[in-house]
Amino acid sequence: MVNIGYTMMTEQCGPRQLVDDLVRAEHAGFDFSVISDHYSPWIGAQGHASYAWAVLGAAAQATSRIPLMTYVTCPTFRYHPAVVAQKAATVQLLSEGRFRLGLGSGENLNEHIVGGGWPSAGVRQEMLVEAVEIIRALFGGGYVTRRGKHFDVESAKLWDLPEQPPPIGLAVSGEKSCALAGRLADLVVAVQPDRALIDSFDRHGGAGKPSVGQVPVCYDPDRGAAVARAHDQFRWFGGGWKVNAELPGPAGFTAASAYVRPQDVAGSIACGDSVEEFVEAVRPYAEAGFTEVALIQIGGESQRAFLDWAESRLLPALRGL
Rank of each mutant, 00 (worst) to 15 (best):
S64V: 08
V293I: 12
A288W: 13
V293E: 12
Q125N: 15
R183P: 05
F237R: 05
P41D: 05
H48M: 08
G115C: 09
D31Q: 06
L18S: 13
L184Y: 12
K176F: 07
R313H: 10
A85L: 10
Q263Y: 09
Y39G: 02
A258P: 04
S155N: 15
W42E: 04
D21C: 03
S36E: 11
L315F: 13
G213F: 12
A251C: 06
L22D: 13
L180C: 03
T145R: 05
M69C: 15
A52L: 02
Q17F: 10
G117V: 03
G252W: 04
P316T: 09
P250S: 03
G320C: 12
V215K: 06
V91N: 03
G106Y: 04
D20N: 06
D152I: 05
Y219N: 00
Y259S: 14
V91W: 09
T145Q: 03
A88C: 11
H48F: 14
T254W: 09
M8Q: 10
E107S: 11
P167I: 05
S105Q: 09
D199P: 00
A245E: 08
L321F: 06
S105I: 12
N3E: 14
F30A: 05
C74Q: 14
G320A: 14
P250M: 07
A228P: 00
T63W: 01
F237Y: 10
W159V: 10
L56S: 12
E96N: 15
K209S: 05
V275Y: 07
Y6D: 02
P81R: 12
G14Y: 09
V2N: 00
A28D: 03
L187N: 01
S200N: 15
M1C: 08
V153C: 09
G174R: 07
Y285E: 11
M127D: 09
S257M: 06
G104W: 04
A60R: 05
V2A: 08
L197Q: 01
A181T: 04
A305M: 06
D199W: 11
R319I: 10
R313I: 02
Y285N: 06
V227F: 07
V172T: 13
L93M: 15
A317R: 04
A82S: 14
E26P: 00
Y285C: 04
V188G: 02
Y259P: 03
A131D: 11
Y79V: 00
S177C: 02
A85T: 13
R146H: 15
H231C: 06
V129N: 05
F306D: 09
F253H: 11
D186E: 15
G29W: 02
F234T: 00
P119Y: 13
N3I: 02
M127Q: 15
A89D: 02
P248V: 13
T291A: 15
N108A: 15
G182S: 12
G300E: 08
S211V: 11
I269T: 07
D160E: 14
D264G: 02
T90H: 09
P221R: 05
F139I: 01
H112L: 14
G300Y: 02
D31W: 03
S50F: 15
A207M: 12
F99I: 10
Y6A: 01
R235Q: 13
E111Y: 12
F139A: 02
